[in-house]
Design a protein around this nucleic acid. Structure first.
Ligand SMILES: [Mn+2]
Ligand SMILES: [Mn+2]
Ligand SMILES: [Zn+2]
Ligand SMILES: [Zn+2]
Lengths: 146, 146
DNA sequence: TTACAATTGCAACTTTATTGCATTTAAAAT
DNA sequence: ATTTTAAATGCAATAAAGTTGCAATTGTAA
């Protein structure tokens, strides 16, 4: 459930490989993301970043990372945006993030379940699927221990 | 794909059966909902209702209908709230809306796919699922004709 | 008709997100 | 080292979605 892209902690290298300038706001976001095993919500991320970085800059950093295939955005069942490290092999124009998401009702975390795959879906006549997203609500492995 | 609850158009009766007063804002919402074969977004619904009804009242009507099992809320992949008639047999404390939703990228409509059922999902150790929601993005039957 | 709880409308506010523009800065070129 | 400049940031203004408190109104049961 941890990313292969960020665990070497060469954040500057990652930015350079993506033709992005190495800046404090970007490094800050990467550092926070790399330490987690679940997605992080926009509001929480904003708090963690603190006053160091402007809110607008944070939005722009996230948008850029999304476009570059470094992070992906997940909207949870309440409509809150979450961000997570992209699995393995996403790139600028080729996202490969079709995995399940688990929303814990207790700790409110969103987990990417990368290793699960979706059975084929048969749609009614005329409907053409481009992508499929599956969200599960329940209690996560940490919270179910208590 | 059409509701059994509202097609008799006895809106007042429906409200009374749910211990709700028959009021103009509530009848207005039911009338709009009954005519559709897809979910309706909060912003669109607000425009259709026009200045006749206060925004806050609309939010409260929707919340009440949700609690009573008359409507259910779906958050689409952009985080926008949509509302749809509940299928057949939802009631105050027993929602029965575990079906797929189809998000059309062209017309932006959200369709409830009531007649499809989800295959069982095996979660990692410790995770306990309470409910599952599946959203499909693509082109709907109307839009794919063009 | 009356009485009263339920419902509505209004004002104020919060949170999330976007846009335009002036200023700053990382990094490439000299 | 300096210069240069496109890229990135910060700030102010704005918009949209949603919430809360409270006074006024109204549906309905008595
Ligand atoms: Mn994910
Ligand atoms: Mn539905
Ligand atoms: Zn949890
Ligand atoms: Zn469509």
């Amino acid at each position: 459930m941890t990313s292969r892209v960020l665990n070497d902690k060469d954040f500057a290298g990652l930015l350079q490989r993506n033709q992005l300038k190495v800046t404090a706001p970007r490094l800050g976001v990467l550092k926070i993301m790399a330490d987690r095993d679940s997605a992080i919500s926009q509001p929480v991320l904003e708090k963690l970043m603190g006053a160091e970085v402007d809110r607008v800059t944070l939005y722009r950093v996230l948008k850029t990372f999304e476009e570059k295939g470094i992070l992906h955005k997940v909207i949870d069942l309440n409509g809150t945006a979450h961000y997570a490290i992209c699995s393995s092999n996403c790139s600028e124009h080729n996202h490969q993030d079709e995995h399940f998401h688990f929303n814990c009702t207790q700790c409110k975390q969103v987990y990417c379940l990368n290793d699960m795959h979706l059975p084929a879906i048969h749609l009614p006549e005329g409907f053409e699927a481009a992508s499929v997203s599956l969200s599960i609500t329940g209690v996560c492995n940490h919270c179910s221990k208590e």
